[in-house]
Design a protein around this nucleic acid. Structure first.
Lengths: 210, 210
DNA sequence: AGGATTCCGAACTCTTTGTTCGGAAAGTAG
DNA sequence: CTACTTTCCGAACAAAGAGTTCGGAATCCT
């Protein structure tokens, strides 16, 4: 999928139409069930034109996801600078807000449509950021973690992706700010604080308690 | 996909061969790239025979996943009874051990192969168990959660799936017992305890601190 | 041994994919 | 506005894969 600026208006229009059609159809029938003709029909574009823009369905999806990530990253420095310096992580609330604006695409990604590559790449991006942020801060403070930071980063990424997948489908009743706050409190202070349940009540505790 | 006991030896053999072939090929080339003929060739089975057993690739995968879940659930009561009563969650360590035994299939599921349905179902199963466990225990103790339990259950499920996906790919260097303990400590006591990092160092904290 | 079931493989239809090409349409630059 | 370039269209084509059918051979169960 081309991601050049696309100077020609015709190119911009057909590309936008194809992408829009793919996202719509994916949410309706699932990525797998879609045929190229479905897409071109919905986009009102000749089938040959489709192949002038991308190799196949997957390629089209990759382009969408890549541009979404660029869009997200593009505004990041501004957001970051508005708060503090030296912070290398992605502000969580900003991710939720971005997902709110681009809900359909986030749904497609987080559902794991299209062989799940998009979701894996999204997750990896978050994970790397989180791990870098943890390491930076640990180095600054000279703190000695009780649990390896790579493991902490993976677990935290799992929490974020899990909640985001849920939230983006709608119906949770939380605002971006609310769910962000909950996620932070839970991950920072733990389940004992969050629920008042003693450790022995945790799933899996059976194997760990005397 | 039939999941009957399969009394006939021929049926057992070809079914096993087909499933084995599908898992192998999926790990080699990815589910999407596999053709039915690839499967039958690897399994050394006639192509017509394939359709005598299942509608298509997906159906075959569904059968595999379903039987795996059955296998996991079948031994659960014994495990549970060996530890405590009234606990409705899935013992976490047992899941990791099961994944260790059935590594290839878990890899296929957790990579989100085959349109991601298998992964979604797996996640849902865990999530429901976790939420039920949290609710039961909260009711017993009369505790008032600071964070809604359904949100806690989703976040915890995300942690588990995230770590399990990582662990099952190998190379983490942890045993099932070790990673289970880490997951428990981290989720129960939180990141401040686990890493020594102050709350303001958490990704996303920017939006939440004054 | 006998009857039922399953497997095989070859042939066939149908859908979808991906490519090609010449003419029409729309865009851009000057 | 003109001239030149690029894109779009649609139809036609080849190739691959999906899914079905069927008679005969092989295998299983009892």
């Amino acid at each position: 999928m081309d991601t050049k600026p696309a100077g020609d208006r015709r190119v911009r229009r057909t590309r936008a139409a194809l992408r829009r059609a793919l996202v719509e159809l994916t949410l309706e029938k699932g990525f797998q069930a879609i045929t190229v003709e479905d897409i071109t029909e919905r986009a009102d574009v000749g089938r040959a034109t489709f192949y002038a823009h991308c190799r196949d369905k997957e390629d089209l999806l990759v382009g969408i996801v890549r541009d979404l990530a660029e869009d997200r990253e593009r505004l990041l420095p501004a957001v970051r600078q508005a708060h503090a310096q030296g912070f290398t992580g992605l502000p969580v609330k900003y991710i939720f807000e971005h997902a709110e604006q681009e809900r359909p695409v986030y749904q497609v990604i987080l559902r794991g449509e299209g062989d799940g590559r998009a979701l894996r790449e999204f997750t990896e991006l978050i994970r790397k950021r989180a791990e870098a942020a943890f390491r930076d801060r640990a180095a600054q403070l000279g703190a000695t973690p009780r649990i390896p930071l790579d493991l902490v980063a993976r677990a935290w990424t799992g929490e974020l992706v899990g909640l985001l997948s849920w939230w983006v489908e709608g119906g949770t009743g939380y605002s971006a700010a609310e769910i962000t706050a909950h996620l932070r409190d839970l991950s920072v202070y733990g389940r004992v604080w969050a629920t008042g349940l003693a450790p022995s009540d945790a799933p899996g505790a059976l194997d760990l308690m005397p």
